[in-house]
């Protein structure tokens, strides 16, 4: 008996080896049978938390590309919406006039703001798309919240935009509801507020009304949100009202914008130019 115990003691690492291998193989072969062995898989709480934390860290590394993908998707969707609105519009028109008018497409290019100022009287925005991306002067620029401005000068890869926050900017707008027209100007000061000019005194406007693009200028299609009326003072001068508009675009946090290329712009401009020449 004693010699047997001695023998076992001497061979103890063999016994341990067989024991550990035995445990391993039992685990291996019973993996399908025990539902209870779930704690031995990555579905247990500890490993779940570990992998969750890893995913969380990893997601930070892809924020930039996720953002870009979202911006591009947004641009595609906006383009789609414009196409559809145009189609709807033309469908309605053709129903009215029983004529088939061909819907014109608007091209939308996503861009990122690389430089921006809001506290001067003539602010400019630089975006990272240029003539190589099909951007030219006199195109409308919008953000997901509302309109931003109009392209001014383009190099191959960058474009200077005149935003609403520039004394050169003047954008044709209308009040909704009521359809009264006016021009949106900005005279320095608060970057969140601009003024609507030339709205006739007889027009009914009230605080909270939406200001949208009129579609009179070819830069922007009709109906894009510009802002809402935040102050309305009917006693300012004799001919027209002074209306403060709270801009829907947050210029202080502007990051992603979209450039609208309306193929009609050139045609309209040529028409106007030819009228000028015949004068």
């Amino acid at each position: 008996m004693r010699s047997l115990i001695d023998f076992l003691y001497k061979q103890k690492h063999w016994l341990l080896f067989l024991l550990l291998e035995g445990i391993s193989l039992v685990l291996l072969f019973s993996r399908n049978e025990y539902q209870g062995s779930i704690w031995l898989t990555s579905a247990n709480t500890v490993s779940g938390k570990l992998f969750e934390a890893e995913q969380y860290v990893q997601s930070f590394f892809s924020l930039r590309s996720d953002n870009r993908a979202l911006a591009e998707q947004n641009a595609r969707l906006e383009e789609k919406v414009y196409r559809m609105e145009q189609m709807l519009d033309s469908a309605q028109r053709s129903m009215l006039t029983e004529e088939v008018t061909v819907a014109y497409g608007m091209q939308v290019t996503p861009a990122t703001v690389v430089d921006n100022s809001i506290n001067r009287t003539n602010n400019y925005i630089t975006i990272n798309k240029g003539t190589d991306d099909g951007i030219a002067p006199n195109m409308g620029v919008i953000s997901s919240n509302g309109i931003v401005g109009i392209t001014y000068k383009s190099s191959r890869h960058y474009t200077l935009v005149i935003p609403i926050l520039n004394s050169m900017s003047s954008i044709s707008c209308k009040v909704q509801p009521g359809e009264a027209f006016g021009y949106l100007k900005w005279e320095g000061g608060d970057s969140r507020v601009a003024q609507l000019r030339d709205v006739p005194r007889y027009a009914k406007v009230s605080i909270g009304d939406s200001i949208i693009t009129s579609g009179h200028s070819s830069f922007f299609p009709e109906g894009l949100l510009v802002g809402t009326i935040s102050r309305f003072d009917p006693l300012s001068d004799n001919l027209s009202n002074l209306i403060d508009v709270k801009l829907s675009t947050e210029f202080a946090h502007l990051r992603y914008v979209f450039v609208i290329n309306n193929p009609d712009t050139e045609e309209r401009q040529n028409l106007l130019d030819s009228i000028e020449e015949t004068k």
Binding site: I23, L27, R31, S37, W39, S42, N44, L50
Partner: peptide, 9 residues
């Protein structure tokens, strides 16, 4: 094994 779902391998 626990973290790579290999059950004792």
């Amino acid at each position: 094994d626990i973290f790579s779902n290999t059950f004792g391998v």
